[in-house]
Computed example of a mutant assay.
Amino acid sequence: MASSAERALGRPLSKHRTDERGRRRRAVRALVTGIVVTVAGAAAAPAGLPLPACAVLVVLGLLLVCRGVVRARDARRAGTEMFTVRERGFAHRRAGYSRVVPWEDVTGVEEVRFGRPLTRAAGRDTALRIRLTDGTALRVTAFTEDPGGLAAVVREHTPAGAPPVKDADVAPATA
């Protein structure tokens, strides 16, 4: 149910829910695969497989377990996540937390096409970031329904004075 602050932004135009079950499925898949590969690597040494090959299997399995833990933690923290686009702004709900953002508070939308390899390997890939005037950014993952449509709507309503933000493939410059 929408709060009074959210209703003050006008009628809803679209909703972009996050596929929470898909997020959990990937976490469980990575955990199970990691455990199986780790056990196989540990059991292969006494069976006569060369030690370097066993070590590779064990390390690969442990990395998969770490990836599963990160994804499971993200799924637990995010809970049910949804972006509701309204006439004068949007609302972001996540795990019992709700944030109302009027269009004036949006400075830009940053699309992330590939991300950084280590963040993708850890399962923390991002489809786009919505930058706000207070310096924070809302992260929209690939699990969100139609992230491109959400980016287009937010970009359309971004104030004209805001500079366009390019891809995040290159690390941002530090001042």
Rank of each mutant, 00 (worst) to 15 (best):
P159E: 08
C54Y: 08
G41Y: 06
A168P: 01
V32M: 01
T119C: 03
V39E: 00
V106L: 06
A121T: 04
A42C: 03
P46R: 15
V154T: 06
W103Y: 14
C54M: 06
R99G: 05
L60Y: 04
G79A: 08
V39G: 00
R120L: 13
V165Q: 12
G79S: 07
L51F: 14
R17T: 04
T141I: 15
T119S: 12
R25E: 03
G108D: 05
G10L: 09
R99P: 02
V36L: 13
G48V: 12
T18D: 03
P117H: 09
L64Q: 13
R67N: 09
F83Y: 15
R25F: 04
T144A: 15
V56W: 13
A171D: 11
T141L: 15
A8P: 01
G10Y: 05
R131E: 12
V109R: 01
H92W: 14
P164W: 01
R94F: 07
D125S: 15
A152S: 11
E104N: 07
R76A: 14
V56S: 13
D105A: 08
P46H: 12
P117F: 15
E87A: 15
R93L: 09
A160F: 12
Y97F: 13
R26N: 07
A45R: 12
A160Q: 15
A175P: 15
V32S: 00
A55F: 11
V36Q: 02
A95W: 07
T33K: 05
A121L: 15
T144R: 04
R129L: 10
R139S: 08
I130E: 02
A91P: 04
V39H: 01
R76S: 12
L60A: 10
A47I: 06
E20S: 03
F143H: 13
A137M: 09
V154C: 09
F90K: 07
V65S: 13
T84E: 14
G89T: 09
T141F: 14
L9V: 05
V36P: 01
V39Y: 00
E156Q: 11
M1E: 07
A44L: 13
A27M: 03
A44K: 05
A30Y: 06
P172N: 05
H92N: 07
A40R: 00
V70P: 01
T107N: 02
E87S: 08
D134Q: 15
R94T: 10
D134N: 15
R94E: 08
F143N: 09
S98I: 10
R29M: 11
T144I: 13
A137Q: 14
E6H: 03
L49P: 00
R94P: 01
L60P: 00
A5L: 04
A8Q: 03
G22T: 04
G148F: 07
